Amino acid sequence: MHLAELNIGRLLAPVDDPRVKEFMDNLDRVNGLGKRMPGFVWMSEGSGEPGTGNTENSIGDDPQLVFNLTVWEDLPSLEAFVYKTIHTKFMDRKAEWFEVLDQQHFVMWWVEEGYHPTRDEALAKLNELRANGPSDAAFGWDWIRSKNG
């Protein structure tokens, strides 16, 4: 099994606004690093236009509500990217570019090797976690770390 993750966020401003320029200008750099990491499997992507990441694929009718959906071979691979690369510096600065959401915005779950989840499937997993709490079907960092000891 591989590990899928969805992270959603609402940008403070439209993607072409100077307030989110530094974030947008670094999407290709950070995403490119992720794709080169050991254990990376797949990423949901937009058109491939430079500097857009997956921001063209917003959630619902809100163009500022964006998501990141990836698949990794295992938890250590995802953790290495999230916490041991330049990604950490951008994650630590998320309040400069993203609104604080009032509910859970990150979820992980296991998928069969070779499977690429859709945005709608991933959002359903997030809703499951929000409604029922962590389980084998949908979980966050604390839950999976407690299972992997």
Rank of each mutant, 00 (worst) to 15 (best):
V100E: 11
D92Q: 15
N26P: 02
G39K: 13
V111E: 11
S135D: 06
N31R: 01
N148S: 15
R119T: 10
T118I: 07
E121H: 11
I59Q: 01
L75Y: 12
V71T: 12
D136G: 08
P50W: 08
E128C: 04
T88A: 11
R130T: 03
P50E: 09
A131T: 15
A95C: 02
M24P: 00
H87Y: 07
H87T: 07
E79L: 11
E49C: 03
K35G: 10
G39R: 10
V82L: 06
A124Y: 14
N127A: 14
P63I: 01
R36H: 11
D25M: 00
E79D: 12
D102L: 04
A95F: 11
P117D: 06
Q64F: 00
W72M: 09
R36V: 00
E113P: 08
G114K: 12
G46L: 02
H105D: 13
E128P: 00
W141S: 14
V100K: 15
T52V: 14
G60M: 02
D28T: 01
D120F: 08
D61G: 12
E49I: 09
T70C: 09
A137G: 06
A131D: 10
N57K: 15
N68L: 11
L101A: 02
S135T: 11
W72Y: 05
F98T: 03
D142Y: 04
E73L: 09
F106M: 13
E112N: 11
G39C: 12
L65V: 00
P50K: 13
F98A: 05
V111Y: 05
R93N: 15
I144S: 09
E49K: 12
A95L: 06
E96K: 08
F139G: 14
Y83V: 02
F139C: 13
E113D: 13
T85E: 04
I59H: 01
